[in-house]
Design a binder for these strands. Structure first.
Lengths: 124, 124
DNA sequence: TAATTTATCGCAACAAAATTGCATTAGTAA
DNA sequence: TTACTAATGCAATTTTGTTGCGATAAATTA
């Protein structure tokens, strides 16, 4: 399965890069104003995740958000940071702070999904 | 609105007490084997939350889980602990460890939702 | 005990988010 | 330019949870 470059992909990539925050499907749909089908947006975003370009996080509002991988490379992926969702402007950001937890004996960690909800610095 | 005691409520309460872990609607539906309508289960669980008997958490698999409030009382509710979901047995537990995070300046925290996914001590 | 009130229940319908099937379109390499 | 097949758009489906409403049954009162 070799990827192809398409208008949809480059448009969405441009949006992700300029957003400086994580985007959900409906945010992207609104920005492209119906130029792109909902399904296409989902498929492009998921293909980015498969390729390790973005990471996908389920927020505590039930929606998936997609963010460009910042310090990840082909070998090392680390998405164990906190995510912040502003309840006023609905912006979602990756926070610098890493999630640290010591699991009880016998537990094996596979992934972390940590959210803080509140008001961001522009809204508080 | 005065609550009434019903078979549905006591059945679900018994399940929650004996589970020693958080339960989702579909887990309860399976345990009562169709004796209870989906909607009834949701309504009972949500009424428990309104009454402060349980807390409701959206897991990183997109489902809501309900757990008995452990050390909460009428005045103080604290649900800022980590939650663990086992990908093998699908059991969900509240971990003792509290989530701690220092937000950047200007950010106001309203709620926290932290999940660790992996294998529990019975499955690893 | 019987009557009354209304919380609760079950069923159908709805809603939101995301996925799948399939015919069509369009990158890309030869 | 042609051939191959990834990507797209549309319709339909799936999953999870909620709402509306008439019927049922707790709890209170007579």
């Amino acid at each position: 399965m070799k990827r192809r470059n398409t208008p949809a992909k480059s448009t969405i990539m441009t949006l992700l890069k300029s957003a400086e925050s994580a985007l959900s499907q409906d945010m992207i749909e609104e920005k492209v104003k119906g130029d792109m089908d909902r399904v296409t947006i989902y498929r492009v975003l998921n293909s980015f995740c498969e390729d390790g370009i973005t990471h996908k996080i389920l927020a505590d509002n039930g929606k998936y958000y997609f963010a460009l991988c910042d310090s990840c490379n082909d070998e090392v992926h680390n998405h164990d940071h906190f995510h912040f969702r502003c309840t006023k402007c609905e912006k979602v950001e990756c926070l610098d702070e890493q999630v640290t937890i010591k699991l009880p004996d016998g537990y094996v960690m596979k992934s972390i999904n940590s959210w803080v909800t509140g008001e961001c610095k522009n809204c508080s």
